[in-house]
Write a protein that binds this DNA or RNA. Structure first.
Length: 305
DNA sequence: AAGACGAAAGTGGTTGA
DNA sequence: TCAACAACTTTCGTCTT
């Protein structure tokens, strides 16, 4: 049973591409990223108990965006207590008291956090699979007591940022900052903290991941977009991309590409959607031209008018 | 007048002693 | 913990279209 979106809301094309990995649907013609309501994200990368016999999970899928994951544990009820005596009995009462305190506090916190997460990620059109991941990270962070000394909101934002990176569907710190109302550096701090403490490995973000989104925001033609990708590939071969901010490189590649394909965007326009300054674009742009022998092409275009 | 370019000074983060 | 350092930003003046 396959679900299909018929047309791209941006350009009306039916030439759509579903990237399961990222949980996004991308229009091949205009590069528009259609936000994805589908929960199906194929093979789940998380570890379930590796009973390799069964390749399927039975029953309802466990979800991390519900505060108790649909599972609950209770310390014994009154009827069980009749079997206990003396110290054990006291112990049980104490445990029950603690469970009550802890669980209500935790659950209240989680509910709040998850609704915050939902708010932010729907604002940013984050795919459901990534939101789930963020919820999972947040839960782990809480279990490890990493929230202490930090606001719940900032931990949520950090978790979400980490989840985005993890799924290679990056949002910039600026975007998350704007959506969550948390300062950029605060998000960065908690992001680094929780990924370190939880030992989450993050692949360094790749400029290519930003191209589709920026390009659709700039309403560039698909050829222009794919040409920008080509530029990026070449640039990566010469290690032009290492050490630099990925958004800046992506922006510069798009800028060059827009020049060459005759649908020029100003540096400012590109800079705005990429969240960098014109200066950065200029620097990257210069590097691209000189080190990638694109000089001639650009000059050709310029003299041709 | 707007866009592109570049210089100079400032900011926040990383690294290595 | 501190200083050096690279990347990026802000600001501003100049040149080009």
């Amino acid at each position: 049973m396959r679900q299909k979106i018929k047309r791209c809301p941006e350009c009306g094309s039916t030439n759509l591409y579903h990237d399961k990995e990222r949980g996004e649907i991308i229009c091949r013609d205009c590069g528009f990223v259609i936000d994805d309501k589908m929960v199906d994200f194929g093979q789940d990368w998380r570890d379930f108990d590796d009973d390799s016999q069964s390749d399927r999970r039975a029953g309802a899928p466990m979800t991390y965006t519900q505060f108790d994951q649909g599972l609950g544990t209770d310390i014994g009820r009154r009827s069980d207590l009749s079997m206990l005596k003396g110290k054990n009995r006291d112990k049980y009462f104490r445990l029950r008291k603690w469970q009550y305190r802890i669980s209500t506090a935790l659950e209240r916190n989680l509910k709040l956090a998850l609704s915050e997460l939902k708010r932010v990620s729907s604002f940013l059109k984050i795919p459901k699979s990534v939101e789930e991941e963020a919820a999972r990270i947040y839960r782990l962070a809480v279990q490890k007591g990493l929230v202490r000394g930090r606001s719940m909101e900032s931990v949520v934002a950090g978790s979400l940022y980490a989840a985005c990176r993890r799924h290679e569907v990056p949002r910039t710190l600026d975007e998350i900052s704007e959506a969550s109302g948390i300062e950029k550096k605060e998000i960065g701090r908690t992001y680094r903290f929780i990924t370190r403490e939880l030992d989450i490995k993050i692949l360094p973000s790749n400029p290519v991941d930003y191209i589709a989104r920026f390009s659709s925001a700039l309403k560039l033609k698909p050829e222009t977009q794919s040409y920008a990708m080509k530029i990026l590939e070449k640039a990566q071969d010469i290690e032009l991309t290492s050490g630099r901010g990925p958004t800046g490189i992506a922006a510069a590649a798009l800028y060059v590409s827009s020049l060459i394909h005759g649908e020029k965007r100003t540096q400012r326009e590109v800079a705005d959607v990429a969240g960098v300054t014109e200066v950065t674009i200029r620097n990257r742009y210069k590097e691209l031209l000189t080190k990638l022998k694109l000089d001639k092409e650009v000059k050709k275009i310029k003299s041709r008018k």
